[in-house]
Design a protein around this nucleic acid. Structure first.
Lengths: 121, 121
DNA sequence: CTCGTACATGCCTTGCAGGTTATATAACTG
DNA sequence: CAGTTATATAACCTGCAAGGCATGTACGAG
């Protein structure tokens, strides 16, 4: 399934939103979103195959965690459009690219631009 | 149709990519993308109802132009995820840090690992 | 070994998106 | 006026994704 289509499902986006807080068991996800158990597993399968979640087995339980890298592709597609909805955003866009990470202690490295491949006259 | 689902269609993204260069007539879009005429109109309808394109009538012709504002919603959804794939790079750097690698000095070498794509184990 | 728990998978059904063909609408052309 | 161009819409068909139910699998407890 194409990465964009994976995110077209509202339920799957809600799952990702949940996992943004912390990794969770399948049962927890299903309970919080009011999903059936097979339904939860199916959505998680799609997310897994898209590389958007990773699973860590713990006995019979499976702990799912967010894996956000594939979202960079979405971000990259979006990039050449940003200047359209606000012309002054050009500067902000570059600012976002070097967005500081408040979680980890900053080594004061220049944050690398992970995927920059678009240009436009 | 939900905004995410509108963009889930590859053809519609290609239409937007075309309109990013300049506004175009329906016929031009269909010709460049190899679409049937009704197919083109239908996709343009979906994009129009999502507010992603605007149309300017010119006699019997319709000139469609990009309207990128709704993409801001996508961008907003993406925002809280950005720091995750940045953080992942930090983690990777820590991993590399633990490895005995006498060759390079990781701190002074800003060359990033752009997109390392690893899949199911 | 048997049972209960946690999750995955298979099968079936249904709704809907996307494509095609045919037709409608509108404007220009002569 | 009739004919042509440019686009929209209607009607129909088809494939596939999402949901529900039943079952399979794996692990731990007793």
């Amino acid at each position: 399934m194409l990465p964009f289509a994976v995110l077209a499902e509202p339920t799957r986006r809600r799952i990702l939103d949940l996992l943004r807080e912390r990794p969770r068991l399948v049962g927890e996800i299903g309970a919080e979103l009011g999903l059936s158990q097979p339904g939860t597993s199916k959505h998680l399968r799609v997310l897994r195959e898209a590389g958007l979640v990773e699973v860590q087995p713990d006995a019979q339980r499976r702990r799912y965690a967010l894996r956000a890298e594939p979202l960079a592709e979405l971000d990259a597609w979006l990039t050449p459009y940003r200047r359209f909805w606000n012309r002054r955003i050009d500067a902000l866009e570059r600012e976002l690219d070097r967005m500081p990470d408040p979680v980890s202690d900053p080594v004061s490295d220049p944050v690398p631009d992970p995927v920059s491949d678009e240009e436009d006259p």
